[in-house]
Design a protein around this nucleic acid. Sequence first.
DNA 1: CTGCTTACTGACTTGAATGTCAATATAGCC
DNA 2: GGCTATATTGACATTCAAGTCAGTAAGCAG
Lengths: 222, 222
Amino acid sequence: MSVNTSPDGPSPTTPGKRRRRSAAEAKQLVLATAAARLKAQGLEGLNLTGVADQAGISHATIIHHFGSSEGMRKELIRFMTRELLGDVLVALQRDDSPATLCEELFAAIADNGHAQLLAWTAVENRASFADPILANQDLFRGVIERVAMRLYRHGQNNGPAAELPSASAKELKQARMIVLLVATTALGLGIAGKPLTALLELDADVEREFPSWLAEQIGLER
Amino acid sequence: MSVNTSPDGPSPTTPGKRRRRSAAEAKQLVLATAAARLKAQGLEGLNLTGVADQAGISHATIIHHFGSSEGMRKELIRFMTRELLGDVLVALQRDDSPATLCEELFAAIADNGHAQLLAWTAVENRASFADPILANQDLFRGVIERVAMRLYRHGQNNGPAAELPSASAKELKQARMIVLLVATTALGLGIAGKPLTALLELDADVEREFPSWLAEQIGLER
DNA sequence: CTGCTTACTGACTTGAATGTCAATATAGCC
DNA sequence: GGCTATATTGACATTCAAGTCAGTAAGCAG
């Protein structure tokens, strides 16, 4: 008895079928949906009922998996942060020139709503939102160091490699400053690229040209 | 009758004294309070009761002057936008070198929560939030054009001024690209400067050095 | 098949934020 | 002094997101 089709109306609401996922699958579904909504609708897209409806589940299910609304948002930050780091790592795998690497870093930061993610953390002053990023701090630092060295190779691998002690303090700082420049620029462009180019009366595709233009300005070799 | 001191309890709540401001004064008070709260507490500081309490008025008064909560936020954007433009104009008044102007632009964008303002508009996808900025579009463009010319003077006023037609299309674009670079970098630094420098293991005061470093990198003259 | 774990859900409660409204008081004006 | 326009307010009403809870059902193990 209690057949799925429920011949006799068991209640005003038909129970309907349920899809039962593993906990990991469910969380993945929620986070992917939330990321899409953040990108499409901004912060207001991150309410429980909105995400739940779009994911085809009930909002109580999200609370079940993440504990609370804030729990979901924290995990979303962690999720997107890892995504961003993954993109950077992929770019590092390729053995591209510094200029090309610069362009790929731009893409990783400005695309896929990652800049929006960082903008979000900037307007949310709750300290707890820094935690998911701090948790990946070591991972970040390793990646950043590699990026810094790769971007800064220009001017070094022209001369004999043995001449310099692997990296003097001054050079290390210069390398990091360049990474800081690329990161902040990409972030700013990802957040306000469209209105800024419009105000400057620049073509819309300047946003695409910009990374290579910047690479040229600061003398990254191709 | 109905004396202020209310000798006989007229009601469970004592009416209390009221301060009556002009409409302009009241709006100014609300906007200044809201701007301070945005800077200190992020977006969550912009609720009616919070702003009203801190300003020492009732939340109904805010609705009376701005029509709605969203009305207040729109006017706040306009208010802060004008503030930002004012700072830029002040910097333009001084007859500083391009490098110094660059540093002052950084200060105007990164300080006083203006970067946070732009981050906010980036995570709010409501088109209506672009309106207050678009309303000032002409003002913006005039200022930007002046900034572009000032920043781009390097390399031009070395040679004879008459040699070039006031600005070729190519030079105009280059000038605007430089403005775009400075603006996006300042924005990114204002939003994520602290965590980024921390991740890069750079000193905290790098944020202050950065504008002049950038000016040097792209060859702005002092 | 039986039973257990737990993903999942609808219905409810709670609380905060927004907005409405009628009443009140205050500054400026005659 | 008295009058008027309107800034100001407390006390509602309304809406919506967040969270609780008891109950349901889907997969898995035995």
